[in-house]
Design a protein around this nucleic acid. Structure first.
Length: 794
DNA sequence: GCAGCCCTATTACCT
DNA sequence: ACAGGTAATAGGGCTGCG
């Protein structure tokens, strides 16, 4: 019989010394199935030092290592290694787990140059070789097997051949999603799993069910966890989502389980979640996703708590939810009246998580499909690994061997050009952008590790592209690896966008394609950064360097061409130029760039009025629809107080829309007075900063570090990467660092150092804009208020 | 002893 | 663990003055 299924998860197990690939999926009829393939064997390559005496090497491996490592076969194969034809030994074995061991032995042989592709996980190897794509449909001829009793599927099938990817089916099956969140008892500060029980496990499913599991009257969580496990099995979700679940909920649950000597048997084989790659927990047969991983990429939200991310994505407003300070959870639990509120809070959290999943999964599914990593892994993997997996799967298509990861010394290289803008107000500015500049440069100049020609190599100059400034040479032909990969991505994106034009924007298919084109763009644009990443398998400094060098040359040429036709260039950064808008000339410029440079530049937006501070990467502009862009300024930075940001934003609005400096001054005066009268909410005075390393590693006493230490000694939990919110107070010492207090500890307005907020927050943020108009600081501090005697003598 | 200067550490932004 | 370019603040060391 034949089945068609959508691939959710993949793993393997050794059954009677035979590796068995397990493909977990859902059929078009909505059946949960697992397809087994017992026909695949692990292998790797040996690159010999010389192609002579290959038979000798084969014999040696056979006689010395075959028995010990269950080698099944060794044969000579032709592959490409950085574009060059190579002869490799393909060594096939029986047991995946033995590969690292035989690799180590073989790589130390003197006849062996390098052992390749020995670090590819077995199930990924299987997917690459058989073009099996996660989050996509496959068809396969199968024979039904008896279902092991404890496996949670509707059918177990043995594949008669590797499944075939069916890219034509675009739809996404109806997947069952379960969100969960735990609350812990914390009367002694940050909860510790060896002593503090879980008091609430809240769950929500995408069919609208919400269910809570509570600890019993003696705060015992044993049956709580057991009921949760039962419930997960009953709901049998394809996807489990949490928020910081890899960092908190799973490890906590697992430790509570081991304490109670019970099993967190929630996988489709009744196994417990296990620590896997990229710091995530794998749940066999399901996709376990931690949405906090994705939230980290939403840079518009500065403090990425669940509440803030949910609000930003329109899932749940903060104003409509119960907010409880983390450390107070135990108090809410212990008090029968307050407990209702805690339950509400827990429900709001889990509702937010399921809401986020609903918003984000369509994109993540496309990303998984394009990158070729299973859904749970692609979410956990960082950008570099996503790009790399995309490349690894492409390499197989081109018969290229995957290079090993090698340790290299970090070296910087020159990047892009940024123009110094003329400070002040400019009217009518067009912003012109090169579309996907770096990918297009890599394509058009065929920049790739395999096309690079080292300086000592003699070559006909007609056959190479010579990099400006650096003189690096890249072969024009044949197309390099990066060129082929990027061309394919850009072409695919173009096709998707063309197809979208034929669809109703409110249709499901349109939504899927839109997420798909976004994913294609992200991978294409991240590929340049990847090639300059020292840990990349396809790292080549010259490749990254050449790409930025061409970028500089192109933007310089563009500026020159613009000026030649009389366009006034105001600013530019990397791949954009800001010009005084003259419709005809801009149209001409676009044509000239197309003809002379072979690249597409297009108007991104028009500013009716824009203000430049004079510094690079800091400006603001008024759009035709009345919206305002703020770029780089304090108003968009997460490390300034809300008050300072609000003041600056308002000033920008007054200047750009009303052009009134006096009104702006009046506004600042009003704010300063309000601040002095205690009329500004304390929440607007919090300054958030990230702790980027262990506290003892800091060389200077920074305010956020001292605040972090205060939190820690009060029993709070804090790890690298967390943000600390502090308020500057007037007690604790003379230096700012001493006076920075975690905001949760500041109870009274009288503790606040008002002068700090006036002089170091409001005034600098305001002056960033107003100093250009000749405004002096004194004008911003209320004229109505006389200086005190003390201040007079200071 | 301290004001003033300069350099460095630190963070977060832009493309 | 994708890249480099950039602005800005505060800490901290050093210098020169008295």
């Amino acid at each position: 019989m034949k089945i068609i299924f959508w691939l959710i998860d993949i793993n393997y197990d050794l059954v009677n010394s035979v590796p068995e690939i397990r493909l977990w999926g859902v059929t078009r009829e909505g059946k949960r199935v697992v397809v087994l393939d017992r026909s695949f064997r692990p292998y790797f390559y040996v690159l010999p030092k010389s192609t002579e005496k290959l038979d000798h090497l084969i014999d040696k491996i056979k006689s010395v290592y075959s028995a010990k490592y269950k080698v099944l076969d060794i044969k000579v194969v032709n592959r490409k290694y950085f574009g060059r034809d190579v002869k490799l030994l393909k060594v096939t074995c029986q047991i995946p787990a033995l590969i690292p061991k035989i690799r180590d032995e073989l790589s130390s042989l003197r006849e062996v140059e390098e052992v390749l592709e020995a670090d590819i996980r077995f199930y990924m190897r299987y997917m690459i070789d058989n073009n099996i794509v996660p989050s996509a449909w496959h068809e396969v001829e199968v024979e039904e097997l008896e279902k092991p009793k404890e496996w949670q599927v509707d059918g177990v099938y043995l594949a008669k051949h590797p499944p075939r990817y069916v890219p034509e089916i675009a739809e996404i099956p109806k997947l069952r999603v379960l969100a969960f969140d735990i609350e812990c008892y914390n009367p002694r500060g940050a909860p510790k799993p060896d002593r503090d029980p879980i008091i609430i496990i809240s769950t929500a499913t995408n069919d609208g069910e919400i269910k809570l599991f509570l600890a019993d009257e003696r705060n015992n969580d044993r049956s709580t966890i057991r009921s949760f496990v039962e419930y997960v099995l009953e709901k049998d979700p394809d996807i489990i989502v949490g928020y910081n679940s890899n960092g908190f909920d799973w490890p906590y649950l697992l430790e509570r389980c081991s304490k109670h000597k019970i099993k967190l048997a929630i996988s489709r084989t009744r196994s417990s979640p296990s620590q896997s790659v990229y710091g995530h927990f794998s749940v066999i047969g399901r996709a376990n996703i931690d949405l906090y991983n994705y939230a980290d990429e939403i840079t518009e939200v500065k403090v990425r708590t669940l509440e803030n991310i949910a609000e930003y994505l329109g899932v749940m407003k903060k104003s409509e939810r119960v907010l409880i300070e983390g450390v107070e959870i135990h108090k809410y639990w212990d008090d029968p009246i307050l407990r209702e509120k805690l339950l509400r809070y827990s429900i709001d959290d889990v509702k937010s998580i399921i809401g986020l999943a609903d918003k984000l999964l369509p994109f993540l599914i496309q990303l998984s499909n394009i990158v070729g990593l299973p859904l749970d892994q692609v979410v956990a993997a960082s950008v570099g690994y996503r790009v790399e997996w995309h490349l690894m799967r492409q390499a197989y298509q081109y018969n290229e061997v995957i290079p090993n990861r090698v340790e290299r010394r970090y070296r910087t290289y020159k990047g892009a050009i940024v123009l110094k803008p003329k400070p002040g107000v400019h009217e009518n500015i067009a912003v012109l952008d090169f579309s996907s500049m770096y990918p297009n440069i890599m394509i058009s100049k065929n920049i790739s590790p395999d096309t690079y020609i080292p300086p000592e190599e003699k070559v006909d100059l007609n056959e190479v592209y010579v990099t400006p400034e650096l003189g690096y040479k890249f072969r024009k032909w044949p197309p390099g690896f990066y060129k082929r990969v990027l061309e394919r991505l850009l072409k695919a994106r173009k096709e998707v966008r063309a197809k979208m034009k034929e669809l109703d924007p409110s249709s499901v298919e349109y939504r899927i394609l839109n997420e798909r084109q976004k994913a294609l763009k992200i991978i294409a644009n991240a590929t340049y950064g990847y090639c300059g990443w020292v840990h990349a398998r396809w790292y080549k400094r010259e490749v990254a360097e050449a790409t930025t060098a061409w970028g500089r040359s192109i933007i310089r040429e563009t500026i020159k061409l613009a000026r030649d036709i009389g366009l006034q260039v105001i600013y530019g950064d990397t791949d954009s130029i800001f010009v005084k808008y003259e419709e005809d000339k801009v149209e001409d410029l676009i044509k000239i760039i197309k003809d002379k440079l072979g690249l597409e530049i297009k108007p991104d937006k028009i500013y009716i009025r824009a203000f430049f501070t004079g510094a690079k990467k800091r400006y603001c502009g008024l759009l035709p629809d009345g919206r305002i862009d703020v770029v780089g300024l304090e108003a968009v930075r997460g490390d300034w107080s809300e008050l300072a940001k609000e003041v600056q934003e308002k000033i920008i609005e007054i200047i750009l829309k009303e052009n009134s400096v006096d009104k702006a001054i009046e506004y600042v005066n009003d704010i300063v007075n309000k601040l002095r009268r205690g009329e500004i909410p304390m929440s607007k005075l919090i300054i958030w900063k990230t702790v980027t390393k262990r506290l003892e590693e800091y060389e200077v006493r920074a305010p956020h570090v001292t605040a972090a230490k205060k939190l820690l000694s009060a029993g709070y939990m804090l790890t690298t990467g967390d943000k600390v919110g502090y308020i500057v107070t007037n007690k604790g010492g003379s230096s700012l660092a001493d006076r920075a207090e975690p905001y949760i500890f500041v109870k009274d307005y009288s503790e606040i150092d008002i002068d700090y907020y006036i002089n170091k927050q409001v005034i600098p943020a305001a002056m960033r804009i107003l100093s250009y108009f000749g405004v002096r600081e004194e004008q911003l501090i209320s004229a109505k208020r006389q200086k005190s005697l003390l201040e007079f003598f200071e």
